[in-house]
Simulated assay, not measured.
Amino acid sequence: MSATDDPVLRVDKLVRHFPVKGRLPFTSGGVVKAVDGVSFELRRGETLGVVGESGCGKSTLARMLVGLERPTSGEVRFGDAVVHTARGRRLRELRRRIQIVLQDPYTSLNPRRTVRDILLQPFEIHPDVLDRRHRLDRVKELLDLVGLDPSLHLDRFPHQFSGGQRQRIGIARALALRPDVIICDEPVSALDVSVQAQVVNLLERLQRELGVAYVFIAHDLSVVRHISDRVAVMYLGKLVETGPEAPLYDAPQHPYTRALLSAVPVPEPVGRAERKRILLTGDPPSPVDPPSGCRFRTRCWQASETCAHVEPLLTGDGRSVACHYPLPAP
């Protein structure tokens, strides 16, 4: 199923600030601006890759998309429902339609439950989805769908599986209720390279077969390029560049995006010596006190006074960049 123009998920000016306690009791030390004005749309059957350095707000964004974290302002809209304001039956329905695959396959599964119990639990929480007589058959179908043998793995505990097998169980759990959207929060970062490829190929195959949409969050740009239709680059809580995968990777317009891509390892030795690596000076600023204007200006090689006083807006049609001096094609 190819991506359509019908958005299944809309994110509008999403903000999440965390208060920081001061050194003295009952005093405030400011706020951590983890996510600060993120907007995008996700179409049915599409994969949106979200990349950026550690600490840029990717995982906080993921938690807000599924309603595990309440935004300070802005909204996440699924159809005509706002995720963080839904209650009761409406919230239960949204939980079924939007699922998440967590980053760590070693802690995201209950060690006291067998695979049978882990995959039956979604149907216990949503008993109207499937009749009790057919639930075990559905669990076996899910295991077979993600490449695990039900006759061998159904009654094992999580510690009896490898990392890649545990992540497959996590994917099966996310697919149990047939969701429209799955948020993948760095689902392969804890796995070996060969296992990463297996899990990514599995996600692509499931998307073709089931038509599910993904928000794929990662810091490995090569993996994101392989699986994504569109890519959004985050820096210090904000999106700095978005666009289709091929144009963004081949001709990045934001200096931060170009610096990130210059650090991706090149497997072919031909041309490696001529490749220009961009080394950013200094450390990322604190999200408690981000720079004025453009947040990347303290590490940017072409920053000017304008960058210090005027915040660039994410503008463009299809391909968007938040920079006063977007880079030309290399």
Rank of each mutant, 00 (worst) to 15 (best):
R272G: 03
A190R: 01
F18G: 05
V83L: 07
V215N: 05
L109A: 14
L206Y: 07
A190C: 10
N201D: 14
E41V: 04
F161D: 03
P158S: 04
S189I: 08
V215R: 02
D131M: 02
I169Y: 02
S222W: 03
L177W: 12
F216P: 06
V35S: 05
L94Y: 00
T85W: 02
S162I: 11
T4A: 06
D6C: 04
I227R: 01
D144Q: 12
F40G: 10
A62E: 05
G282K: 03
K21Q: 09
V223H: 09
L260I: 08
G30N: 07
V139A: 12
N201F: 13
P179D: 07
L261Y: 05
I125L: 15
D185Q: 10
L24E: 10
R113K: 15
R96M: 09
S59I: 12
D192V: 10
A34H: 09
D149Q: 08
V76R: 01
A3V: 02
V129P: 00
A273M: 03
L91F: 09
M1K: 02
A308Y: 01
I100R: 09
A218E: 02
R166E: 01
R275V: 06
L313R: 15
C323K: 06
Q198V: 13
P252Y: 12
P7K: 00
H134L: 11
V20I: 13
H84M: 01
L221A: 15
C307Q: 08
L14P: 12
L145D: 11
R173I: 05
R135S: 12
L102V: 03
V199A: 08
R133P: 00
P187F: 01
R90D: 15
A213C: 04
I217W: 12
V233W: 02
R133M: 04
A246P: 01
L65S: 08
P265F: 14
R133K: 15
D283L: 11
G163Q: 07
L119M: 12
T281F: 12
E204D: 14
A263M: 07
E241C: 09
L102G: 00
I171Q: 10
V20A: 00
D131P: 00
A308S: 15
S194D: 11
H126Q: 11
Q302E: 14
A86N: 09
H254G: 04
R133I: 04
G211M: 13
A81F: 13
S304F: 02
E268D: 15
G88H: 03
